[in-house]
Amino acid sequence: MPALLEDKIALITGASSGIGRDTAIVMAAHGAKVVVAARREADLAETVAMIEAAGGTATYAVTDVSDGKQVERAVQHTVSTYGGLNAAFNNAGILEPNGHLHEVDDDDFDKIINVNLKGAFLSMKYEIGYMIDNGGGAIVNDSSYMGLKGGTGRQPAYTASKHGVIGLTKAAARDYARKGIRVNAVCPGVIDTTMMHGLDRGGDPATRAKMESWVPMNRYGEPSEVGQVVSFLCSDAASYVTGQAIPVDGGVTS
Rank of each mutant, 00 (worst) to 15 (best):
A171Q: 13
Y220S: 05
R178C: 00
G203L: 05
D175F: 12
G198E: 14
E222K: 15
T207Q: 12
H197C: 10
G189P: 01
K210M: 12
P205V: 05
R178T: 12
A172C: 00
D200F: 03
T194L: 13
H197K: 15
R182M: 06
N218W: 02
R208F: 03
R219T: 14
D204G: 02
K179L: 13
A206G: 00
T207Y: 01
I181Q: 09
L168C: 03
T193M: 05
V183A: 05
K170E: 13
P223K: 01
A177P: 06
M217N: 13
A171W: 08
H197L: 04
A206H: 05
G180E: 09
V190C: 03
R182D: 06
P216T: 08
R182V: 04
G167L: 11
D204T: 03
D200H: 02
Y220T: 04
N184D: 10
M196W: 09
A177K: 14
G221D: 01
R201A: 13
L168S: 10
R219C: 08
M217F: 12
K179M: 11
A177F: 10
T193N: 11
Y176M: 01
N184P: 09
D200L: 08
D175W: 13
R219K: 15
T169V: 02
H197M: 14
A172D: 03
P223Y: 03
S213D: 15
T193E: 12
D200S: 15
D204M: 04
R201M: 12
R178A: 13
R201Y: 07
V190Q: 09
A209M: 05
K210T: 07
R219H: 14
A171M: 11
T194G: 14
A209Y: 04
V183Q: 04
V186E: 09
P223L: 06
G198Y: 06
P223T: 00
P223N: 04
T169W: 06
G221H: 03
I181V: 05
K179G: 01
G202I: 00
M195R: 10
A185W: 01
E222P: 00
G180Y: 12
I191L: 08
A173D: 06
G167M: 07
A177V: 15
M196K: 13
V190W: 11
L168H: 06
M196R: 15
G198A: 11
I191V: 13
R178W: 09
P223A: 04
T207L: 00
G180I: 09
T169A: 02
P188F: 00
W214N: 14
M195F: 04
G189W: 00
N218F: 09
G203T: 10
M211A: 12
T194V: 08
A185N: 01
A172F: 01
L168N: 06
V215C: 07
